[in-house]
């Protein structure tokens, strides 16, 4: 049986496919988007998370830490270079201010978790969504999970950046009922600048998926000043129109509430964009609709 690193389960997830879903977040991502909402998803390894607002300085963590990584005087600080992620401090912290993001989990454990909400999937036409990070970074684990869900009759969706080797991408697409494909930026230079990878491979994967016949939707995060630039909108529209099948394009609004998450991981926020009050979203929708693209909006 395969195992992988999972960093979160979200039950009653409503925005990642049809019906009521459980979203399983797999850890690790080859992209480094400047606006990433899930910074804990980027590293493929488990990470210590500190919720400093809950810490009241009792020092229990320092006493519990076998490696001396926690400064007893400033328990909010932990030397992440010494920390072995043993989890003793998490168990010791009375306030629940410490957690480890990312657990090595085998397929059975994930299935047990997702099967808890089977009656809700059945009633609502929902299922399971594998998200990340980039779930395709753990292809064998993901493939086995998708097969197991198929055996259990659970609808599956995979939320992907589409940045993956073509054979892996098409293998996963063949096992999933629905692919939720990110389409951020159509041009290589912009993609490199904001996400660290080129657009070409991604667009090729999507093109192949359109040929292949599986169910998919495209999803574009509306990042003010980046993805909503007129050039990019034109590029995106042209690309979609060039596909052999025209999928729906869903627009995902940008929120700035994620910044706190960086602090908890001890990472500096890379970039910060202006929160969209809805005007950009409307603009993007109108201009893409004008270009003949079918738009779906997720709240």
């Amino acid at each position: 049986m395969n195992s992988g690193v999972v960093f979160q389960y979200k039950r009653y997830s409503l925005h990642d496919g049809p019906g009521i879903r459980t979203t399983v977040f797999l850890k690790g991502c080859p992209l480094s988007c400047s606006w990433c909402h899930n910074p804990e998803s980027i590293s493929p390894l488990p990470q210590l998370v500190l919720l400093s607002t809950r810490c009241f300085g009792c020092g229990e963590c320092a006493s519990a830490c076998p490696s001396g990584a926690v400064d007893a005087k400033r328990p909010g600080k932990t030397d992440r270079t010494i920390c072995t992620l043993c989890g003793e401090c998490v168990r010791a912290c009375p306030a629940g201010a410490r957690a480890i993001a990312g657990q090595r989990t085998d397929v059975e454990e994930v299935m047990t978790m997702v099967e808890r909400d089977l009656p809700f999937y059945e009633e609502s036409g929902g299922g399971v969504t594998f998200s990340g990070g980039e779930p395709l970074m753990q292809p064998d684990f993901l493939a086995e999970l998708l097969s197991r869900c198929r055996e259990r009759g659970i609808h599956t969706a995979v939320d992907t950046s589409c940045h993956a080797p073509a054979p892996v991408f098409m293998m996963v697409a063949g096992l999933a009922d629905l692919m939720l494909c990110d389409l951020k930026l159509a041009g290589d230079p912009q993609m490199l600048e904001y996400t660290g990878v080129k657009a070409g491979g991604i667009l090729d994967n999507i093109r192949a998926l359109a040929e292949d016949g599986g169910d998919f939707v495209l999803r574009m995060p509306v990042i003010p000043g980046v993805t909503d630039a007129p050039d990019n909108l034109r590029g995106v529209a042209d690309f979609i129109k060039s596909l052999s099948r025209r999928p729906v394009l869903e627009l995902l609004p940008y929120h700035s509430a994620y910044r706190e998450k960086y602090r908890r991981l001890g990472i500096t926020v890379k970039d910060s964009f202006t929160e969209d009050t809805g005007r950009r979203l409307t603009y993007v929708r109108e201009s893409l609709t004008g270009a003949g693209i079918v738009i779906g909006i997720e709240e």
């Binding site: 409503l14 019906g19 009521i20 809700f120 059945e122 009633e123 036409g125 929902g126 709240e299």
Partner: peptide, 23 residues
């Protein structure tokens, strides 16, 4: 309020309630 904003989200909430009742 966001969970009841659209017809689609209300349908999901309806499913949630129906499942509770089925259980």
């Amino acid at each position: 309020p966001a969970l009841l904003k659209t017809g689609k989200s209300r349908k999901k909430l309806a499913s949630l309630i129906r499942t509770y009742f089925r259980l």
